[in-house]
Amino acid sequence: TFEVERIVRKKIVHGNTSYLVKWKNYSSKDNTWETEDDIRTKYGDLVDDFEK
C-alpha cells in the first residue's frame, strides 16, 4: 500500500487540479501527479495543510 509523505506542488490544467505527491519510503524521482479528488478522498488533511 502506498502512503503519501507530503504534497510537493500543485498544478491546474483546464480547470482540473492535480498535486505532485511524494510517497513515503520512495525517492523523489518516484513522485507522481494525482488528481485532487483521488488525494482528497484519503488524504484531505494533507491537501488542506498544503493549501494554507
Rank of each mutant, 00 (worst) to 15 (best):
I39V: 09
K52C: 08
D49I: 13
K52W: 07
S28F: 11
V4I: 13
S28D: 14
G44F: 10
Y43A: 11
N31K: 05
Y19N: 00
F2R: 15
E51K: 05
G15V: 01
W33Q: 01
E34D: 01
R40H: 04
D49V: 10
D30Y: 15
V8P: 03
L46K: 07
K11A: 10
W33S: 01
V8D: 02
G15F: 03
E5G: 03
H14D: 15
K52T: 09
N31F: 12
V8T: 03
K22Q: 11
V8L: 13
I12Q: 07
T35D: 11
D37N: 12
E51Y: 05
I39R: 00
N25Y: 10
I12H: 05
Y43Q: 03
K11L: 08
G44Y: 08
R6T: 09
I7Y: 00
D38C: 15
I7T: 02
V21F: 00
T17G: 04
S27W: 06
K11V: 07
F50E: 01
V4E: 02
W33H: 01
D49F: 10
K42G: 06
D38F: 15
T32H: 02
K10C: 09
F50Q: 02
E36S: 08
Y43H: 08
V13M: 10
V13Q: 08
N25A: 06
L46Q: 04
V47H: 13
Y19L: 01
R6I: 12
D38N: 12
K24Y: 08
Y19E: 01
I39C: 07
D37F: 12
E51P: 03
R6E: 09
V21T: 02
V21C: 03
Y26C: 15
N25C: 09
T41P: 11
L46C: 05
G44Q: 13
D49A: 14
E5P: 04
N25I: 07
S18W: 15
S27I: 08
S18P: 01
T35R: 12
T32Q: 02
K52F: 08
S18H: 15
K42R: 11
R40K: 10
K11R: 13
W23L: 03
V4R: 00
V21N: 01
K29C: 14
K24W: 07
D37P: 07
Y26S: 14
N16C: 14
K24F: 08
L46S: 03
T17V: 14
K42H: 09
K11E: 06
D45E: 12
R40Y: 06
T17S: 06
D49E: 14
S18V: 15
E36C: 06
V21Y: 00
W23R: 01
D30M: 14
G44R: 11
V47L: 13
T17D: 02
K29L: 13
K24T: 07
S27Y: 07
K52G: 07
V8K: 03
N31L: 14
N25E: 10
E5I: 06
I7S: 00
K22P: 00
K24G: 05
E5A: 04
K11I: 09
Y43P: 01
G44S: 14
K29S: 12
Y19M: 02
F2D: 11
T1C: 15
V4H: 02
V13F: 06
